[in-house]
Design a protein around this nucleic acid. Structure first.
Lengths: 204, 204
DNA sequence: AAATGCTGCAAGTAATCACTTGCATGCAAG
DNA sequence: CTTGCATGCAAGTGATTACTTGCAGCATTT
């Protein structure tokens, strides 16, 4: 796959190809994968429809390229290397902000894949699974460290926590962008972190 | 709208119309709204394509009818009247199970609407917003009652809790049906409730 | 100057879509 | 029996889809 792309890519004119991918991403994002048209993409890119096929050969290939790019971008966006304060609330807030910002950047594609994605399991797994998993691991790893320090309850299932935590962030994004939530982004993040830190339990 | 539907509905043969709606729901669910075809719906219903248009006049109308039906079904499924034990964990588990079961029944449509829904804000609001809101209110109301009894921390934002709670259930469903989660349904519900009850805090 | 390669433009292809029309059939009520 | 109504079937409409072909312009490289 990547050799093919590289071969197409290598000639001159890097501008066109990039413009096409951005246009395609925009089109896929707000029309959905099936409803996106090559004509629409060409219009967004300000070029002729034929140019798409000269670069990518098919809509399918173009989609694959866009998904790959989105996936890489998401990955690099939510790399959470570096310093943690050790204060669980602050650090969870940071996890939440980083993850949410990455999600927002890729929201359209994520939404599109939720809709059409179960008929494209490969793409779905590539974009979502392989990308989110490392993020989950870093959260779980962080929590396990706090566990050894006694800052977190011992019976917490840290990998499950990571999944549920990011799911509520994703669900929240969907609600907000559909105009269904009373909370804005910051409120959502704050409340989410608050709940995941405290639960509903009365203070000790 | 309902008068129109009623007028079409009133003639004989209740079987056909119902079969069409079920077929349409299945088709919308696994092809997505835009990619669903009237031909495919007719095949599922085991009837001629023309029959669809004689009953519903357009694909648009059929979709509207299906959404309305789905919405009503979801509403009645997740009506949470009745007795609570007063034990927060047990009751949250019950909320989670009821909501999740309702979601599962309507998963295909929900997924379809996430994908194509932002170009159909009315349908989206109808199916999702107007239906989930009452459920959120009953959770919030329940929590507020527990607050007065001192069984829940006083500074908990109960409406936000309801939103975040259901969002994580929805996100979980999406993950599972995409084959992206390690947890099965029961594990997901259990872990979610566990976190929303305890958070990560060390036991008192 | 010649050659190469990206691009635009015009036109066309075969498939598929939602939707229509006209007619035949069969069932049920009058 | 006859009238009405739901349905099937065959055929077709016009729009739109992804994708192709052939040609010409234009820039850069050789």
């Amino acid at each position: 796959m990547s050799e093919i792309l590289a071969k197409i890519k290598t000639p001159e004119k890097p501008g066109m190809r990039q413009r096409l991918m951005e246009a395609a991403r925009a089109e896929f994002s707000d029309k959905g994968i099936e409803s996106a048209t090559t004509r629409g993409i060409a219009e967004r890119a300000g070029c002729n429809e034929v140019t798409i096929f000269r670069h990518f050969e098919s809509k399918q290939n173009l989609l694959a390229a866009v998904v790959q790019e989105t996936s890489e971008e998401f990955s690099s966006l939510c790399e959470c290397r570096g310093e943690f304060s050790g204060d669980p609330r602050k650090d969870l807030e940071r996890f939440a902000q980083v993850y949410n910002a990455s999600l927002e950047r890729c929201e359209g594609m994520a939404r599109a894949l939720v809709g059409d994605g179960h008929r494209r399991p490969t793409l779905c797994k590539e974009l979502v699974g392989d990308v989110i998993e490392p993020f989950h691991r870093s959260i779980a790893c962080y929590l396990d460290r706090l566990k050894t320090e006694g800052l977190v309850r011992q019976d917490l299932n840290s990998t499950a926590f990571a999944e549920v935590f990011t799911s509520s962030l994703f669900g929240g994004l969907l609600r907000r962008t559909s105009g269904l939530s009373d909370l804005d982004r910051d409120a959502w993040l704050r409340e989410t972190v608050d709940i995941f830190v405290h639960g509903i339990e009365v203070a000790k």
